[in-house]
Structure formats: structure tokens, C-alpha cells
Design a protein around this nucleic acid. Structure first.
Length: 213
DNA sequence: AACTCGGGGCA
DNA sequence: TGCCCAGAGTT
């Protein structure tokens, strides 16, 4: 897909979300980092509820360490993998306090060294919180990249590189949220709703689903 | 590449 | 009920 077409696609899906709720409503780097760490293999809405409760209780790494694993676990039991996530959130907070002056490092290697933080989570923080040229590729974005033709690839890294290269720099920062929501509500893994997709004119997918029932 | 963790959402 | 999910870490 050409860069002009990619711009058309991204602009079409921007602000067209039926459900604005997202973990990315958090722009504070620390809260965003914790939210994404907790979001692994969980649904967004359930993680948002948990993040709000946790943020009200501990909005800084130092406060999170003081809250402790038990304290964090008490707030996040409604999501899967809560035991490991509670440990990770507290441990990464402790590292932020001890090694990074209580702040989220503006650095990929340092981020990925934190427990519970892999390439995807680090990319979200670098792109969304710090505005760097990066794209986080999760299952939704991987699917959209391939299905639409924006960034085809068999590996997440290939899709990631394609997206960073083709999405206009001025749209890159918000594209993560737009693509996730687009994948969640319209360009779904099963039964995508192409008939109400605002970007269907730019999509290269050959199998456009017609309106049902 | 193939596991494991894990409760909630949804068909 | 069964299957999937805004992944990361280990083997």
C-alpha cells in the first residue's frame, strides 16, 4: 500500500471509534506502563477498571512499592494472570525507584529489562507516552497490517517495521490506539464488519464481508 | 517453536 | 461449555 493510501486509511479510522475506552486513556508514562503490563492476555475494559482503582491507590513507583504485592493483588484479582502481574508491577516499580530516579526510562533497553515488559510494552511506552518513532504490534495490529495490506509480514517485527515506515510520522503516535480499537470493534479477527468500516476504500483485503442478516 | 500462566467475555 | 484474549518468560 502506498504512503498516501496508508494516510487515507489511518485518517479514516481516527475518531471513528464506537467505544473510546482504552488503556491508552492514560498518558502518564508510569500509569501507562503499569496498565500495559497488566493488559497481557486480558480484555481492555477489565484492565481499565483495575488500573483506575490501582492509580487511585498508588500513582507513583514509590507508592506502588509501599502498597506491596499483596496490596496490588487485592485490587487486580478480577483479571487473569493477576499473581504474576502484581509481582511484576511492584518489582518494576522498585527498580524505577532504585535505578531510574523514580521515573520511567526513556530508553528501550532499560524498559525491556523490567519484569513483565517485552518489546510490545516498551514500544507502547516509547510511542504513546514519549512520542518516539515506534509501533507496538499486538495480535490486532498484526492482523490489520496483513489483512489490509498496510504492512504485510509473517513476523511481528516485519509488520512493525512496515508500519513505522509507512504510517505518516504525524499520525504515528495516535495510530496505535486507533488501530487497536479498529481491530477490536470493526476489523475483528472473526467476522470483520467491512460494511461499516470507514477505511474500506483503502483496504486491500479481497474478502470484504457484506452486511449481515 | 512450543509451552505456561488464568479469569473474564462471548458465542 | 468451549474458545479466545491490548504478551512475556522460560525451555
Amino acid at each position: 500500500m502506498t504512503r498516501a493510501a496508508v494516510r487515507g486509511f489511518i485518517e479514516a479510522i481516527s475518531g471513528a471509534n464506537p467505544e473510546p475506552e482504552s488503556e491508552l486513556e492514560y498518558t502518564d508514562p508510569y500509569t501507562l506502563l503499569c496498565a500495559v503490563v497488566m493488559s497481557a492476555q486480558a480484555t481492555d475494559v477489565s484492565v481499565n477498571k483495575v488500573t483506575r482503582k490501582l492509580y487511585a491507590e498508588a500513582a507513583t513507583p514509590a507508592a506502588m512499592v509501599a502498597l506491596g504485592v499483596e496490596g496490588v493483588a487485592r485490587h487486580i484479582r478480577s483479571i487473569g494472570l493477576w499473581q504474576a502481574k502484581a509481582r511484576n508491577v511492584v518489582e518494576l516499580s522498585r527498580i524505577l525507584v532504585e535505578k531510574h530516579n523514580g521515573e520511567v526510562p526513556h530508553d528501550r533497553a532499560a524498559l525491556e529489562a523490567l519484569p513483565g515488559v517485552g518489546r510490545k510494552t516498551a514500544s507502547v511506552v516509547l510511542n504513546v507516552a514519549f512520542g518516539e518513532s515506534a509501533m507496538a504490534v499486538d495480535t490486532h495490529i498484526f492482523r490489520i497490517g496483513n489483512r489490509t495490506g498496510i504492512a504485510p509480514g509473517t513476523t511481528t517485527r516485519a509488520v512493525e517495521d512496515g508500519l513505522v515506515k509507512r504510517i505518516p510520522p504525524d499520525l504515528l503516535r495516535h495510530s496505535h490506539n486507533w488501530l487497536i480499537l479498529h481491530g477490536r470493534y470493526i476489523c475483528k479477527a472473526r467476522k470483520p464488519e467491512c460494511w461499516r468500516c470507514p477505511a474500506v476504500a483503502w483496504c486491500l483485503c479481497k474478502e470484504k464481508t457484506p452486511a449481515q442478516e
